[in-house]
Design a binder for these strands. Structure first.
Length: 428
RNA sequence: GCCGGGGUAGGGUAGUCUGGUCUAUCCUAAAGGACUGUGGAUCCUUUGACUCGGGUUCAAAUCUCGGCCCUGGCCCCA
């Protein structure tokens, strides 16, 4: 081999067996979303760079693929879907029937170091509801997410639910900077206890506050019970927290009545970084927590307005397909393809006319292959075998004069003589 | 951007520490033949690799430096 091009870092080739899995997964996810009444949309792969800097700040430019086009416009390959979908909503905001329920499978690019489950080019499945502030919308997103996993055959997962306003109110009551405090909370599992404590005390938190925080973060269990517990034990948190807790209680009731109570737990440590989330947030973990979070989502009521629309609440989630694939392969439930054709036609001698006739008829309803090279019979049988053909039709000069051919079942090896016209009636 | 592990035919590997018939091992795969009316078995043939570049040396797959890529993590995670 003198020279070959290699694929770029962090991207992936999908060979037939890989692509098959992706198609099955996507079909399954879309089917679930459709059953919940979501409609599929598709956005462009490129957007103006501004839409992302507006939402996430200039720092994001270092982490995405961006360039100036020939007209000097700042362009980027989309690193996530939400801004594009919000743009689509805003453009037709007045006429869309609310709530707007959309899903999509989108391709994304991020200029970052590849890691397990993180590639530079990847696919995400996104589900969003625009225009409903109701706890039912939160619940609809959660239950759809749960069903997506269940319908794929994944059941060793847990949804961790929270609302940013609960911890937010707590930090405000201590006069601490809320966003910075969230960032520290997000790090809790990555640093040891003394460091966690010192990060918070650097921010101005005293020991009493720290103990209260740990008390809150360690509350663990059923959503409704935990919400009640906080309403009782932390009366000083204020209105915002009470509203959030009541909302979570409603979500909890809905989940219970829907039969998904066991799939969710309360977990205030979920804050989703410094994202645009405003209220309810969640992250999904495998039960062993051996992988990073599988996916997450939540409510982002300010983004539509931030991107130029009229104020409109929104809630949604996004699942990255790479992690799903890892999880499913570990569980042994990744769909394996069967590319074997239903029929393979072997020819002997000059029978092309008869062979092509039967091939064409069968191809209306079946997968049919035959040798594209002029090979001997042994070769043709070999090819049929390697392709995984279910049945082989052997058409030879000797037999076809009498209107018959041989039909061989490749799994059993049994072979029968078949009358051509009867076969055509039966299969075509 | 930072830190660690790694890179030998399409896939999997031996060899690397201790440089020397390495003209690179074996398994598998693919193509063809033995077998111009029968696949999976067997035998034979063929295809096919030291990630790239510089350095040290009489001699580099082996030692060394750098790039590229893979991989685990940090940062980040929108």
């Amino acid at each position: 081999m003198s020279f070959v091009f290699e694929k770029l870092r962090g991207v992936r080739d999908f060979y037939p067996e890989d692509f098959h899995g992706r198609k099955v997964i996507y079909g399954n996810l879309s089917g679930t979303a459709k059953n919940y009444g979501f409609k599929e949309v598709c956005t462009p792969s490129i957007e103006s760079l501004d839409i992302f800097t507006k939402k996430s700040g200039e720092a994001i430019v270092d982490e995405i693929y961006s360039f100036n086009d020939k007209g000097g416009r700042g362009i980027c390959l989309i690193p996530e879907l939400t801004p594009s979908v919000v743009r689509m909503v805003v453009q037709r905001q007045k006429v869309l029937t609310k709530p707007v329920k959309w899903f999509s499978l989108s391709r994304h690019w991020r200029y970052e170091r590849p890691q397990k489950g993180r590639q530079r080019e990847f696919y995400q499945f996104n589900v969003d509801i625009f225009g409903s502030r109701s706890s039912r919308a939160d619940f609809e997103i959660l239950s759809c997410g749960i069903d997506c996993l269940l319908n794929l055959g994944i059941d060793n997962f847990m949804f961790h639910l929270s609302d940013r306003n609960i911890l937010g109110a707590f930090f405000e009551s201590l006069h601490l900077p809320v966003n910075e405090a969230f960032t520290v909370v997000d790090k809790r599992n990555k640093v040891d206890e003394p460091e966690f404590r010192s990060m918070l005390s650097d921010m101005g938190m005293d020991d009493e506050g720290y103990d209260s925080l740990i008390g809150l973060l360690d509350i663990n269990g059923n959503v409704n019970d935990c919400a009640d517990l906080i309403l009782e034990d932390y009366p000083a948190l204020g209105d915002k927290a009470v509203i959030a807790l009541k909302n979570l209680r409603e979500v909890g009731d809905l989940l219970k009545n829907y039969g998904f109570e066991e799939n969710c737990k309360f977990d205030l440590s979920i804050v989703r970084g410094l994202a645009y989330y405003t209220d309810m947030v969640f992250e999904v973990f495998d039960k062993k927590k051996s992988l990073r979070s599988l996916f997450g989502g939540g409510r982002y009521d300010d983004l539509v307005q931030l991107l130029g629309g009229q104020s409109m609440p929104a809630v949604g989630f996004a699942i990255g397909l790479p992690l799903l694939e890892i999880l499913m392969k570990e569980s042994g439930i990744w769909p394996e393809p069967d590319f074997g054709p239903d029929f393979f036609v072997v020819t002997i001698g000059d029978v092309e006319k008869e062979a092509l006739r039967i091939i064409k008829l069968l191809r209306k309803d079946h997968t049919v292959e035959y040798s594209l090279g002029s090979k001997n019979m042994s070769n043709q049988m070999n090819l049929a075998n390697n392709l995984g053909a279910k049945k082989v039709i052997i058409i030879g000069e000797r037999d076809i004069k009498e209107g018959v051919f041989s039909l061989k079942d490749m799994a059993s090896g049994t072979q029968e003589q078949v009358v051509l016209e009867e076969f055509v009636k039966r299969y075509c």
